[in-house]
Design a protein around this nucleic acid. Structure first.
Lengths: 213, 213
DNA sequence: TAGATTGTTAATCGATTAACAATC
DNA sequence: TAGATTGTTAATCGATTAACAATC
């Protein structure tokens, strides 16, 4: 791993490479060239080679890349394969959906518990995951280390939720609330702004002509 | 609206501006300068002025921008305020979660129906939205015009779902499946790759040092 | 070895930022 | 009018692409 700062653009392409390589592996394809990747992924071949070289020389001149080896390298870079424990703050629609989503689809991620302020929900269970009161988050984390805090609260409660997580030393936040929460230095943050994405789609519907492609 | 091609980067900042201006309006703030926006949004002031000027001269020298006016302009640009009818393909976890999410949180978007292939689900209802068989999509659309097709199927069925939507002339697709679906020229597409976002978060956990602010 | 394809340097392109004249 | 702040041009920065020498 080189010491250069990796750009956001590169980091965001890594999952795409990873998905693609998994597909290739599934199809039993053993080797792949940047040229073929380029046409499949609709990215420039130079860019692909450059991206991969940020992390090491995974290819072989005159041959290309070994699919499985490259996949494993990217897996390691992304930190997949490790186990992550997460808690969800907010046991409403999004919170509940995420339990299902992460439970069924992804291995490596364990949702340990949910937290809410709604008394009616506290003590209940969804798919075997208990709902605690938000006030008990500190006590819970003291007993059960948590890697990722997922914010699935309403808009207005999101920053508070983030603060609470940070107070209890959670170092990574996955935010689903439609706000840009502020985090301390050192805390990792990823936003999933569903409504923003929908707005962009509407923008395209209304503004983008058929000229492109 | 000028005739220049608006860059992706600009388009993706519009929802952020829109959210921010809504906040200001709520707080009763009437005017705003690019300088203040800059510090609140953590964007460069020149960039903000430039972004807004892609669409028109909404400001006033020596004064700044009128919050309400600017908000309304961006709303119009994004095509909000209009009504959109959507169908969801895939009535699993994500599909169900989206019904709740869009039903409660967003006005302007109407989920008309769900479609699935699972016989056990067909005929049932979620929050008053009926689940039809995927095969009946064409007949449904013939009767009820649909603006947006939401793909909430498993990975393997996503491209098929996209094809089905396009066959029946749906011009905008919001894709939640963890694949890059291919669409015809003229069809608008927005992806929400939840797993990609989670991978990026894991990348940050494992690779990014505390050097940055 | 000859052919293929990487890794990497150099060229290009586009987006961000700075600067300032226009003007409310 | 003087002060403030936009709209816009010019400068900078960074990311993408092209080109090619290195090498399997």
């Amino acid at each position: 791993m080189k010491e250069e700062k990796i750009s956001e653009a590169v980091v965001h392409r890594l999952p795409k490479y990873y998905r693609y390589l998994n597909d290739l592996e599934q199809k039993g394809i053993e080797r792949i060239s940047s040229w073929k990747m380029s046409s499949d992924l609709d990215l420039n071949a130079s860019q692909i080679r450059r991206d991969l070289n940020c992390f090491g020389g995974f290819g072989q001149q005159g041959y290309g890349y070994q699919v499985i080896k490259l996949k494993e390298e990217i897996k390691k870079i992304l930190g997949l394969g490790k186990k992550y424990t997460a808690v969800i703050l907010g046991a409403g629609n999004i919170g509940q959906a995420l339990i299902n989503y992460l439970g069924f689809e992804k291995e490596g991620y364990n949702i340990a518990a949910l937290f809410d302020v709604n008394e009616k929900l506290i003590g209940k269970e969804f798919h075997g995951k208990k709902i605690f009161h938000m006030n008990d988050l500190g006590a819970y984390i003291a007993e059960n280390p948590v890697d990722i805090g997922i914010i699935a609260t309403p808009r207005a409660a999101a920053q508070q939720a983030a603060n609470l997580l940070m107070q209890h030393n959670v170092k990574a936040i996955w935010n689903f609330a439609p706000v840009d929460v502020t985090v301390q230095k050192g805390v990792k943050l990823e936003n999933v702004h569903l409504s923003d994405s929908l707005y962009v789609l509407c923008y395209r519907i209304n503004n983008e002509t058929e000229t492109e492609l």
